[in-house]
Design a protein around this nucleic acid. Structure first.
Lengths: 227, 227
DNA sequence: GGTAAAGTTTATCAAGTGTCCTAAATTTGT
DNA sequence: ACAAATTTAGGACACTTGATAAACTTTACC
């Protein structure tokens, strides 16, 4: 592992096509398209250049329109960020719905699928890219905090449900702690995965360890008693 | 768990007395004290109000001096941030030195102590507070990235050493992955711990699960073969 | 075709940013 | 006492930021 390294991220450009941009009610078609374009550009800037660089002007420039038009669609900057968080949360919802409404899959299978989904996200670095920014923001912006909390709650909900199916006898508190630890481990993994180049060589081995560790946790859920 | 909550962090004000501010070579005593005061105020602002609020003027105002004096000690903003990162890294170094140079402690004991130290940090939320900001920054500021990488390397070094003592037979790559996963799990834990109020009620239970999980990993290191 | 709403541009505002500069006053180490 | 280091008090620079308001253009619909 080198002690000093050049600043090169392996992620060149994020594709945000798979993010959900629900249309607002009773708007012109053109207006909705523009809103989508704005949010896309905003997220692109957020991920690739950071929150500081995600200014109204740069967003406007990124999608080739004037600043005034941007404030027409989003009167304040907070409105824009809110819409952005909405789309992120919606995308999560869609992702986890796929797992929970998977036809004829036992709890164990759903747990495996859940873990596999997160590990896959770790490989493709999809959510990893905007999470650190949003999380840092949430420490000082109350409304970001509330939305991020909502996101965390929704992300853990399916896992909570699965664990409840498998170990209904466990007290809710311990189930919640177990779920939280799995989530935490995954969160930590995305930290290092997102950290990119320095850790890239050992990511395959890390994934092996992670898979084993998660399997251990599954075994804990199945067989052992929680301390 | 409430679905919406008021924005109240349990951490009111950070105390940075235990952070290391190494003196620069060939400076007067007074100058060193002032530098310390500046860095303290800067870190306070970073933690409690975020990186955006950590402007030269606000730092100067926070420690009751004029802007000119601040630029006298730190010609550019980057100089200041560099010094800040230096202090953070130094503090880490001191913390881990205590573990590694503990008299007559076998590798197993040092591993326990290492985990316990991190869990203690999780309880007191010491480093948790500025990590998200710095990490988010590192994604877009090359020099912050290099320093944060240095920090990660130094933080994992002792753990690496311990694991090497315990399992010299394992290939370096797999040892590194194991170390990385333990670090990742801890990193994730600090994420949720730093998240504060919403998770506060279940922190004790979470800590129990975490302790057990870490013990499992230790057992993995001791007895089993890594996949 | 006309009309009202939606969408877009243009121009401007006050405020904040980091950096640089000069000149003087004060404190400190020796 | 003397020189170096530190601090104060300003001002100015070029630049970016979010927000506002007035004009202009396109679109939808009767």
């Amino acid at each position: 592992m080198p002690d000093s390294l050049t600043f090169e991220r392996k992620i060149q450009a994020i594709t945000v096509a798979d993010l959900a941009f629900p249309p607002r009610e009773g708007g012109y078609a053109k207006g909705h398209e523009t809103r989508e374009e704005i949010l896309r550009a905003a997220l692109h800037l957020l991920v690739n250049s950071g929150y500081r660089a995600m200014s109204m002007r740069k967003i406007a420039a990124a999608c080739g329109m004037k600043l005034g038009n941007l404030t027409y669609h989003f009167p304040t900057r907070e409105d824009l960020v809110q819409a952005l968080l909405d789309s992120v949360i919606s995308s999560y919802e869609i992702e986890f719905d796929k797992i929970m409404h998977h036809p004829q899959l036992p709890p164990e299978g759903r747990l495996d699928l859940y873990c596999e989904t997160v590990l896959e996200d770790l490989r493709t670095l999809k959510t990893t890219r905007f999470f650190p920014e949003l999380w840092a923001l949430s420490n000082h912006d109350p409304f970001v905090f509330e939305r991020m909390h909502e996101l965390y709650v929704r992300a853990r909900a399916p896992l909570d449900e699965i664990v409840a199916d498998m170990r209904a006898d466990l007290p809710a508190e311990k189930r919640a702690a177990l779920v939280l630890f799995i989530s935490a481990a995954m969160e930590g993994l995305t930290v290092f995965a997102g950290y990119g180049k320095p850790f890239e060589p050992m990511m395959p081995a890390l994934e092996g360890v992670a898979t084993k560790a998660f399997k251990d946790l599954v075994r804990t859920i199945r067989e052992e008693d929680i301390p």
